[in-house]
Write a protein that binds this DNA or RNA. Structure first.
Length: 449
RNA sequence: GUGGCCAUGGUGUAGUGGCAACACAGCGGGUUGUGGUCCCGUUAUCACCGGUUCGAAUCCGGUUGGCCACCCCA
């Protein structure tokens, strides 16, 4: 109901802001949780499309597991000693008395699903992919959130090294397709036995150097000796050089397996580096382990892994499968990848350009514009509107900002005449066309016919 | 979990004990139907709670949140 302005009224409009009562305090997002706004969503969309395309092309099938699982799944699967389980899980008891946790990582639930649904009776390997939110109650910092998303692939039920290589390849290739150059850092930690033997040797070695270790490193020695190898402490750098090397502790099969993985990577042209000090935090890893890091001149950027993965032949038994299920997989951290994408492709965040803007004037014009917009859209023309606006001027401003090449204008007069104005926004010229032929006319102008 | 820096409109900032300012964005106008410029209007519980003070955005304490590093990880 259009209102007439009341020229009689005094100009002093502002109705003296009422002595507002204090409203409730504004609600902030929870620590470490964030909104993904439209400007960022275009990067997410591109990454999702590349991830989906690649995984489906390689025969991986989409899976979605519950955000909430029994806490025991992660305690057993990820490892009681790991930081993830010890201090980072969102765990609570439900009203029904179940002990549950928000999913902190994607692999254990997928293995649980594989076992639960008897996928070991399907042709092996079973190949699955996911794109899901994860939750870890860690202190937020650069590239780290309490809710974060991972894209990952898992290949279950087969121990062939070509699959290890395929995982590293897919992680690397997804990034490449999304416009992010990366390098795969890769290592082998062998079987559970060889890894255990190596761990003992490592502890024995560092015990003799205990007096040279920092406080943090002494803790690592007890809690997580493998991590001593990627300690950032300066004094560690030389100690490390003398330390036992994992390669010397691998059994022949593990070594052969690893060599084959590397050969496949060579064949596929994957950019990779051997890193004898690379170990991974989760208990379930065996044999191949890798991380994917961005190529960057900035050392701080280059060290922040975009993803990681490897083989985890021991996981199924930890979860009670009753028989071994060799498997491997990888996951990429979406937020971290998107940060790199923004750097590589700053323009992607800009709003999409539209070809035609439909402007209207008056109630009749608006109704007609409503219909014509839909007609244009249905014909595959990228149209835009601001139907809720009344002033033609405001609408033209919007059309201009969108970079629309053409404007279709319908007012009362045009409705009565059964016409529409087609305006060339660049030239500033316009013509009157039959309203029924607007779509046809626009198509012609856009060279679509 | 430990430590450092920080918090002023939607965004970016100025104000460092005495009237909260500027730019951009948004919305509404510039005489009943046409865009990039221009002009006008409008947009703030100074994160929250408390303390010191005649007086606090400013000083102090706490809380919440952000950024960064460590631990760890994607």
């Amino acid at each position: 109901m259009p209102m007439k302005p009341q020229p009689m009224k005094k100009p002093d409009v502002t109705p003296a802001p009422a002595p507002v009562k204090k409203g409730p305090a504004p609600i902030q997002p929870i620590r470490g949780m964030r909104d993904i706004l439209p400007a960022e969503a275009s990067y997410w969309k591109k990454l999702y499309r590349e991830a989906e395309q690649l995984s489906e092309d390689y025969g991986y099938e989409r899976i979605e597991t519950p955000v909430l699982e029994e806490t025991a799944l992660y305690v057993r699967g990820v490892g009681k000693q790991t930081d993830i389980v010890e201090k980072e899980m969102y765990s609570f008891d439900t009203a029904g008395g179940e002990h549950v946790s928000l999913r902190p990582e994607g692999t254990a639930p997928i293995m649980r699903s594989y076992i639960h649904h008897g996928m070991l009776n399907r042709p092996q390997p079973v190949k699955l992919w996911y794109w899901s939110p994860m939750f870890r109650h860690d202190r937020p910092q650069s590239g780290r959130y309490r809710e974060f998303w991972q894209f990952g692939c898992e290949s279950l039920g087969d121990d062939d090294p070509v699959l290890d290589a395929q995982m590293a390849f897919l992680a690397w290739k997804t990034l490449k397709n999304a416009g992010v150059e990366s390098v795969v850092q890769i290592n082998s930690i062998g079987t559970l036995e060889s890894r255990a033997n190596y761990k003992n040797a490592l502890v024995a070695y560092f015990r003799t150097k205990r007096h040279k270790l920092s406080e943090d490193d002494k803790k690592r020695l007890v809690k997580n000796p493998l991590r001593l190898l990627d300690s950032k402490e300066p004094e560690m750098q030389e100690l490390k050089a003398e330390a036992p090397q994992i390669m010397d502790w691998l059994d022949e099969d593990s070594k052969a397996h690893f060599m084959q993985v590397l050969e496949y990577l060579d064949e596929a042209g994957v950019s990779y580096q051997l890193d004898p000090y690379l170990v991974r935090g989760l208990d379930y890893y065996t044999m191949t382990v890798f991380e994917v890091t961005p190529v960057s001149d900035n050392a701080d950027v280059a060290k922040l892994a975009l993803g990681g993965g490897g083989r985890y032949d021991g996981l199924a038994e930890l979860l009670g499968s009753g028989r071994p299920v060799p498997a491997c997989g990888f996951a990429l951290g979406i937020e971290r990848v998107v940060t790199r994408m923004k750097e590589a492709m700053p323009d992607l965040g800009a709003p999409e350009k539209r070809d035609v803007f439909v402007a209207q004037l008056g109630e009749q014009g608006r109704k007609k514009a409503f219909a014509i917009f839909e007609e244009l859209r249905g014909s595959g023309i990228r149209a835009a509107e601001a139907l809720s606006k009344k002033a033609i001027k405001a609408q033209m401003e919007i059309a201009n900002k969108m970079g629309a090449k053409w404007a279709v204008i319908i007012g009362q007069k045009e409705v009565l005449d059964g016409t529409a104005i087609v305006r060339d926004m660049d030239a500033g010229t316009q013509e009157i066309v039959d309203a029924r032929k607007v779509v046809q006319e626009i198509k012609k102008k856009l060279g679509k016919e």
